[in-house]
């Protein structure tokens, strides 16, 4: 097995100021995706991915992004709406990249590997399904009200 990740606190502290805003993004997206703040290693990796892939937001997406960053509760709604209205939006790409990074990090593998799920978990999944549908419906309406057009 390879040696442990060297993406540690020191690397974060030594990072350039521009990275600090990326770490804040990573934190917000991580909390949205798995309900907990991501590790510092994941944040560093996210910042590196953003610098490498260079995802640019158009003015409309930037407006939505600002809403997400200031009002975390709106994340699911905007993401759900975008999944239908603008599935290839740059915001979705940022979240997707973070999802991939979380999946490829051993500390979060339990969120992604197949598991044996009991009947109670099915209720949880059904709840997630209903919530996803509601978020999508509300999201589409909100995006329309904000003047976001489909791709």
């Amino acid at each position: 097995m390879a040696s442990p990740c060297r993406c540690d606190k020191t690397e974060i502290e030594a990072s350039v100021p521009a990275d600090q805003s990326l770490f804040a993004e990573a934190d917000r997206i991580g909390r949205y995706l798995i309900g907990a703040p991501p590790s510092s290693g994941v944040k560093v990796l996210y910042a590196k991915a953003m610098r490498t892939i260079n995802i640019e937001l158009d003015p409309v997406e930037q407006r939505l992004w600002n809403v997400i960053m200031h009002h975390p509760f709106a994340f699911r709604i905007i993401d759900g709406g975008l999944a239908l209205v603008r599935p290839n939006s740059s915001i979705r790409r940022k979240v997707y990249t973070m999802l991939a990074i979380l999946e490829a990090s051993p500390e979060y593998c339990d969120y992604f590997l197949p598991q044996r799920f009991g009947p109670l978990h099915m209720v949880n999944i059904a709840f997630a399904g209903v919530r996803a549908l509601l978020a999508a419906v509300v999201g589409v309406v909100v995006l329309k009200l904000m003047g976001v057009k489909g791709q």
């Binding site: 999944a83 239908l84 999802l99 969120y111 997630a128 996803a132 999201g139």
Partner: peptide
């Protein structure tokens, strides 16, 4: 998850299941 056309947070839970 990307193929599911859902928000990524709930999409992850559902797809893991």
């Amino acid at each position: 998850v990307k193929e599911a056309s859902l928000n990524f947070s709930d999409g992850r839970k559902i797809m893991q299941y």
